[in-house]
Write a protein that binds this DNA or RNA. Structure first.
Length: 309
DNA sequence: AGCGGTCAAGTTGAT
DNA sequence: ATCAACTTGACCGCT
């Protein structure tokens, strides 16, 4: 049974998440800013519940929550603590209701902090900001029952093994809440599955295997070998990533994502696994639905696993 | 209401 | 030196 995942937003469904800009918030006084931010947070909690309801109805088993679900949460000037917001308890309850929905419907949720989170940066201020961001996302992850906060290896800085040692040192500074959700994903430029698997085995951090990145940034491993070794890093349902190249594998920039998934890009060795496959396709929910149809046509089971079944 | 410039943040590699 | 790429359009001030 393959659980398919939708990333962050919708193409056709009228479900939107709101954010704001530092420039706009900066024109207000602190109370006005907090009032505006609280409204956005509350609205995002409602949107998230509707997103999860749509996923449950459609058989989409996983939803990735955008990093800006609490807008500007860790901004150096305009960041805030939840308790500072008007209606803070209502906001937290709104997200916790999402978590309850996730558990009741057998869904999965996850986070993917963006490129500014670099745990092995050579700049201490970047590491501090990264730790803060991970703690924030882990807090919301706890509310919404997300078991994965997934990041990339970060920079190489001319020496990958030294950089990964720095990564582990800073990983150890995270709270248990953040550490137990953190995962590593191979990227399309720097860190291959081979690079990360050693760290994953050493630390117990699971590997989110992105087969598209692996095809763009290969190492000595075949897709089958990387799949097998990535599966072994998980103590829960493994999570993998899939996309198709915008202009084909022979095109000028195969790392660019297509609107939809070509089912031929779905590795055969994934078919019989019980895994989550996040669909990184620009057409969003129609792309997930299309892939589900294509996989079922090939006899692959797709849907939301029933606990115990 | 519609348009276009802009949006917090890091790192790499192609031009 | 600049810029696109990365998980992704959406916000906001102007007309």
């Amino acid at each position: 049974m393959i659980r398919l995942g939708l990333c962050c937003i919708f193409r056709d469904q009228p479900i939107k998440f709101s954010t704001t800009t530092a420039a706009s918030i900066g024109k207000m006084g602190r109370p006005g800013a907090l009032a505006k931010l609280a409204g956005l947070c509350l609205s995002n909690a409602e949107s998230l519940l509707r997103a999860l309801q749509f996923c449950a109805e459609t058989g989409i088993g996983c939803f990735r929550v955008n990093s800006q679900i609490l807008p500007l949460k860790t901004h150096p000037t305009y960041g805030y603590q939840i308790e500072e917001l008007p209606r803070a308890e209502e906001i937290v309850r709104g997200f916790q209701a999402c978590g309850e929905f996730v558990r009741q419907h057998g869904l999965r949720t996850c986070f993917h902090p963006d490129q500014f989170v670099v745990l092995n940066s050579q700049r201490p201020d970047v590491v501090e900001a990264s730790l803060q961001e991970l703690e924030y996302q882990a807090m919301v992850a706890e509310w919404v029952a997300a078991d994965v906060v997934n990041i990339h290896g970060g920079g190489a800085f001319g020496d990958k093994s030294r950089a990964m040692a720095d990564f582990v040192r800073n990983f150890d500074r995270l709270s248990l809440r953040a550490r137990k959700r953190l995962t590593l994903e191979n990227d399309d430029r720097t860190y291959t599955p081979q690079d990360l698997l050693a760290v994953c085995r050493e630390t117990g951090i699971p590997l989110v295997y992105d087969v598209h990145h692996h095809r763009c940034n290969p190492d000595g491993l075949t897709v089958e070998e990387a799949t097998r070794q990535a599966l072994a890093t998980w103590d829960r349902e493994p999570m993998f990533h899939l996309s198709s190249p915008l202009e084909g594998w022979e095109g000028p920039k195969p790392e660019r994502h297509h609107d939809f998934i070509d089912v031929k890009d779905f590795p055969d060795c994934w078919r019989d696994q019980r895994i989550t496959v996040e669909v990184e396709a620009k057409a969003k929910e129609p792309a997930v639905v299309q892939l589900a149809l294509d996989l079922r046509r090939l006899g692959v089971g797709v849907g939301i696993p029933v606990p115990g079944a």
